[in-house]
Design a protein around this nucleic acid. Structure first.
Length: 701
DNA sequence: GAGCACACTTAGAACTCTGACT
DNA sequence: AGTCAGAGTTCTAAGTGTGCTC
């Protein structure tokens, strides 16, 4: 399996290789080469959309959002996500449900409302405070907090009731959150192309400036101490930080790094430092390691301070105002500088990913909103007001010349709404002409194009990019006609070559669209995944199963889909260890079980011999119960071991989050009386709120 | 129709947090 | 109270889809 993973990586890498080669060929001028290509284009005027590209430009709506901008308070609704943030993560942000947004356009409120807000704020503070100290003086503080919210008495420590109480509060909170959620799916949609009518945010958050090395940490070249210039030193640190990583041993990585590093050096440095092998980053590396260690060993208080500081940043930059609703931004931080870590054998690995300045960043927001203020002494590259796109800020990265975006969180309206579409596309069930059936017809065709497209539909559902022989090794059930055609693809190909190199996605999608409008490879993949999940769930679960069994079945169904989509992962580094630990536990439990069994036998014997002594009878009962308990625990662990082993190289999360129609899972939960939070964590519940809200028990995909 | 730019979505590694166990 | 595995989150590279240009 591990090899398969590699093969996949290689396949992908190879597939990309052409593209990459073109890139690196055209980049004789180094990383700047690519950048120029892009930056020339992007120096268009503010009024133009997308660098002069004649995109369907939608006029920014006027008055309504203007009003909203000047007094968003009235209309802003607090998203439950915020509350949840605290509820689940303890120390993270906390807001009262109806608290108006303290967003970017923090307008002045009436004295009364201000007061009210302040009160809320204080409550919030003390609440947060209470949560903060939870870890330290857990019980005491929790009681205090609960007293504030509910007239609960117990001053005494711990107690089960208290824990139950806390749980109840949590559940109640959750319910309230559900109530206050922005049910955008019940609202009217905007006309085509309009993504928002009002958008306001604080702009991206920039990583801190580089802090020079302390005087006692030195860099050595050829055994001699060399004091580097600030720029060169920063880039040296990037390398030193990665010394433990395999990357730094790779030739390409080292070469790219050294080339880019030298560009950052002063003239003297450049004439001195000519060989990476003669560079000694030892002290810098040691310093970095010590820092990491120190971070780990920080006291609770120190960690708390750090956490609070981070939270402050999130509060300030992590949210935006989108059509009167506060939405979490997915990646509000500008990517910090560092060394490029391409995947696989990337020709550009090790290159310097440059620090992004405000002058590189394009801001997108409402015309009527408060335009984010650039950091002191800087200006934005451009400010535009394009509501046909969803991004809040963008910049062009220097390695590949790709555009990077600041966008909303996956649970935001904009993201979820889009995500929604693919499931509804799948709902059409390819009426009348399922691609898999129509494919068989294509196989008989004499037209080479159709010959190509038929099998590739299969490919969407089977591990991608593999040569047929590897498919056969895997035992994939490929019908003979398909196999024959697949063999044709093999002509003049080496193992590992791209199987469908003569076919591109555009061609495939065209073919799919001819079967059903709107059908693309992605929609098909989604459909395939979802229908598999539904089938598997039907097959595997019984209503009479207990919760654990049901969940195992769910995981298995999920796993079947992940395998179908070829969602592999590297086995966790700790896998063997943790497996061994679990095995040890199982062995220990087996011993305990054996012991318990002998004890039971003994007790039974005694009870038999000494007649009907009620004491002995209860002892027998107790021993029986012990044996039963032991057996159950053992079974549970064994199931866990199987589950883990089966999951070793499978990544479930991708299919769960991206391909499976959540309504199937929600309907299954309702049907099987399994709480939704057993299968979806908070992030997932947020993203699939619409499905949780609207799916009926009898939903069929 | 190939190729490109842009705007997204997907993937999975790296990092961080939590809570069960000792 | 400390440890640690696993769950959850963040980060960013890579892939996909669409529309445009040549």
């Amino acid at each position: 399996m591990g090899r398969e993973k590699d093969a996949k990586g290689e396949g992908k890498a190879k597939h990309k290789a052409k593209k990459l080669k073109e890139l690196s060929d055209s980049e004789s001028a180094g990383p700047g080469g690519d950048t120029t290509k892009y930056s020339v284009k992007s120096t268009t005027s503010t009024e133009k959309t997308h660098n002069g590209k004649s995109r369907k430009k939608v006029k920014t709506p006027k008055t309504e959002s203007l009003e909203a901008a000047s007094s968003p308070r009235e209309s802003v609704k607090e998203e439950p996500e915020d509350n949840d943030f605290t509820a689940n993560k303890g120390l993270k942000r906390k807001r009262m449900k109806d608290e108006p947004m303290e967003g970017p356009s923090n307008s002045t409120a009436t004295p009364t409302s201000k007061k009210k807000n302040k009160r809320h704020g204080q409550e919030e503070e003390s609440d947060r405070e209470a949560q903060k100290k939870k870890s330290k003086k857990r019980t005491e503080k929790t009681v205090k907090k609960e007293e504030g919210e509910h007239p609960v008495s117990k001053r005494t420590k711990k107690t089960k009731e208290e824990i139950a109480e806390a749980r109840l509060v949590k559940i109640k909170k959750k319910e309230e959150e559900e109530q206050s959620r922005w049910r955008w799916w019940e609202e009217e949609k905007y006309e085509d192309g309009v993504k928002w009518k009002f958008l306001e945010h604080k702009g991206p958050f920039f990583p801190p400036e580089y802090q020079p090395l302390p005087d006692n940490v030195n860099f050595y070249y050829d055994g001699k101490k060399v004091k580097l210039s600030l720029a060169a030193e920063e880039v040296a640190l990037f390398f030193a930080q990665m010394l433990d990583h395999e990357y730094t041993t790779k030739k390409v990585f080292r070469e790219n790094y050294f080339k880019d590093w030298r560009k950052e050096m002063t003239h003297e440095e450049r004439s001195l430092i000519k060989d990476l092998d003669k560079c000694d980053f030892g002290e810098i590396h040691a310093m970095h390691k010590a820092k990491v260690e120190a971070r780990k060993n920080m006291t609770k208080e120190e960690k708390l301070v750090l956490k609070e500081a981070n939270q402050k940043i999130v509060d300030e930059y992590g949210y935006c105002l989108l059509d009167h609703h506060k939405e979490r931004i997915g990646n509000f931080k500008i990517e910090p500088p560092g060394l490029f870590r391409g995947r696989g054998e990337h020709p550009k690995q090790g290159m310097l990913k440059k620090r992004i300045q405000p002058e590189d960043v394009i801001i997108n927001c409402s015309r009527e909103s408060r335009v984010p203020v650039p950091p002191a002494g800087h200006r934005w590259k451009e400010v535009r007001h394009d509501n046909s796109v969803t991004w809040l800020a963008s910049w062009t990265e220097n390695i590949q010349g790709a555009i990077k975006y600041i966008m909303l969180n996956a649970n935001s309206k904009l993201k979820v709404e889009k995500d929604w579409g693919k499931h509804f596309a799948g709902k059409l069930k390819f009426s009348g002409q399922h691609p898999k059936t129509s494919k068989t017809q294509d196989l008989k065709t004499n037209k080479p194009r159709e010959k190509l497209e038929g099998p590739s539909c299969w490919e969407i559902g089977i591990p991608r990019g593999k040569a047929p022989n590897s498919l056969l090794q895997k035992g994939a059930p490929v019908i003979r006609k398909v196999f024959k055609n697949l063999k044709l693809f093999l002509v003049n190909k080496e193992p590992g070559d791209d199987l469908f190199d003569r076919l591109n996605t555009a061609m495939l999608n065209k073919h799919l669209s001819s079967l059903m409008p709107g059908l693309t490879a992605k929609v098909f993949r989604t459909y395939n995944a979802s229908i598999t999940l539904q089938q598997q769930l039907k097959e595997l679960t019984n209503k009479s199963d207990n919760l654990a069994e049901k969940l195992l079945s769910y995981n298995r169904a999920n796993r079947a889909v992940a395998i179908l989509c070829n969602h592999q992962r590297a086995p966790p580094k700790t896998f063997d260890q943790s497996m061994a630990n679990l095995q040890a536990k199982i062995d220990a439990r087996k011993e305990t079980l054996a012991l318990a069994k002998t004890e039971l036998k003994q007790a039974k014997k005694e009870a038999k011999n000494k007649g009907s002594d009620p004491k002995l009878q209860t002892l027998v009962e107790r021993k029986k119960a012990a044996v039963k308990r032991c057996e159950e625990q053992l079974l549970k662990m064994e199931v866990q071991a199987t589950d883990r082993e089966e999951n070793k190289q499978i990544a479930l999360s991708t299919s769960k989050l991206n391909y499976l129609d959540p309504r199937i899972s929600v309907a299954w939960c309702k049907n099987m009386e399994v709480p939704v939070d057993k299968i979806y964590n908070k992030t997932q519940r947020d993203k699939f709120a619409w499905a949780i809200d609207m799916t009926e028990e009898d939903f069929e995909f």
